[in-house]
Design a protein around this nucleic acid. Structure first.
Lengths: 300, 300
DNA sequence: ATCATTGATCCAAAAATGTTATCAATGTGC
DNA sequence: GCACATTGATAACATTTTTGGATCAATGAT
């Protein structure tokens, strides 16, 4: 670094006062030091910032520009410093949260709304990540909290069950099975199935595959899509049935018809909130508390 | 200033590498120095930025935030430094230009369009200022160039005539005088006159007052407005006639009817471009050149 | 013409910065 | 389980940088 904040601050003082002595007073240093610092800055930039006669100081075009920039930069540093302190004191906080599609469409919005209301000084950064990715990011300290289906086995990661969902079939409106009260795995095995890709929906896929296996069936997927909207679009278009953990809140029954899937024992998908045990902060603690509170109404 | 760019840059290097030795290499300094600088920064902020075991370095929440901010700030400083150099070398420039209403509605747009085309690296900052204010701002070096009516007498200020305008009466469409080819001061003295306020239009007011005086009349203003659009609004509404230096380009003849004012000798308002002799820069020189070129078609 | 005020320069003292050598802690590999 | 390499922190010392007081030359005001 060829110069530092001292140079900028000194230059700003001189440029604002247009007088080296007054600037020196303001900075509580001697005038020669001010002279030299400004000269040094000019020399290191290779640019004249001030036109000085022995009676008057005037900014050059470059100087004028640098004055504005430097004021701004120094201001930003002050703000940053302040924010750093607030973050450290716990007054402010930033929580980086991972979520999956299953948790993202109803549970997470409810929790964040509630949490924001009670903690306006905490910024939430939400990142869509499937469960395995969340595991990595939690361990690498790239997210603070993860909403996942199931839980992780790791001594470094702690998790708490938040919500339970039953598997549900989502049918297009005029599907033959839409008159039924509920469906079985055997019903579904005979149908065209639309499912999320394994890359994006690894956990749900595993759960569904297991459920089929237990019922003595094999899951055959007719069509895949990576996003929830993509899947629902295919269902609405009549391509087939999908299996999900509930009815997405934004769906109307005229486009998507939900039917419970009956199995014995019932398949229950548990959503967990997970975090690195060693990184637990105050804001995280409060977020976990809110999540458990809100999640209670999602428990069967 | 409690800490320097050195501290920020060092912290950024460590935070990015998450390793003091590699950071030291990158900064071409010894590792103990890096340690000390980071410790110093933490101490001065009063905030722990890095969690370090003897085997691993991890950012705290504050540290993560500061990393992003510091990267950004350092980047801005680089950009500022670069821009300062470009400004000094004349590659880039910022011209602060004052203009009055008379010059602002036709001459200035023509000049800036032409100038921008030829000098894309020069930013023009246009400020509306009446002539006396421009005089002060030029002397105080708060604007580089001023478009004014008339010229200043000052050894410090140089100016160049750019355009000449004849006084013109602007009438509402159905005014009795609108059938006439031209008008005299005596005609106008009998009419209701709408004029710009003295505060905002000092120069034009003085010119008009002088013209009336020479014709043995006294200017009586029925209604004042501060802005050109306000004045024209009053004229269109039939409140009275105004006196201006031409037909504003944005007016249609269905709303405003221009009539030449005949006097002997003719009253000619000369628009000048003025600047502080001592501040003449390359960009200013080019702007002046363009102005004179474009202005030529405005000379009678 | 005198005087006060301006920014720049010189020099010695003080402060800071950086380097080498070293340490304690902790994973890694055999 | 033990030697070893690697981690960040510390100590001591040399060097560089920074600072403040005295002073200077230039210049506008009285």
């Amino acid at each position: 670094m060829r110069y530092d904040l001292k140079h900028l601050a000194t230059f700003v003082a001189v440029a604002e006062e247009l007088n080296f002595h007054r600037a020196a007073d303001r900075l509580t240093m001697a005038q020669p030091a001010v002279s030299r610092v400004v000269l040094e800055l000019e020399e290191r930039l290779g640019v004249k910032l001030l036109e000085r006669t022995t009676r008057k100081v005037r900014l050059t075009e470059s100087g004028r520009y640098l004055l504005e920039e430097a004021q701004d930069i120094l201001g930003r540093i002050d703000v940053a410093e302040n924010t750093v302190r607030l973050l450290a004191s716990g007054t402010k906080a930033i929580l980086r949260i991972g979520y999956t599609t299953i948790t993202g469409h109803s549970l997470l919005p409810d929790i964040t709304r509630e949490f924001r209301r009670a903690n306006p000084d905490v910024r939430l950064e939400l990142t869509y990540l499937h469960a395995p990715a969340q595991r990595d990011k939690i361990l690498q300290d790239e997210i603070d909290l993860g909403f996942i289906e199931g839980s992780f086995q790791s001594s470094e990661i702690e998790s708490r069950p938040l919500a339970q969902h039953r598997l549900m079939a989502l049918l297009p409106p005029n599907h033959p099975l839409s008159t039924r009260q509920s469906l079985t795995i055997d019903d579904l095995a005979r149908e065209e199935l639309v499912m999320g890709t394994n890359a994006e929906w690894p956990t749900l896929r595993r759960i569904v595959v297991d459920a089929f296996q237990k019922a003595g069936q094999v899951l055959t997927v007719a069509q895949e899509a990576s996003s929830l909207t993509g899947i629902l679009g295919l269902v609405t278009a009549g391509v087939g049935i999908t299996i999900f953990t509930g009815m997405p809140r934004f769906c109307g029954e005229h486009a998507i018809v939900p039917k419970p899937i009956v199995t014995d024992p019932p398949v229950i998908v548990e959503t967990h909130l997970a975090w690195r045990r060693a990184s637990l902060s105050g804001a995280m603690r409060r977020f976990i508390e809110t999540s458990e509170h809100v999640g209670r109404s999602y428990m069967l």
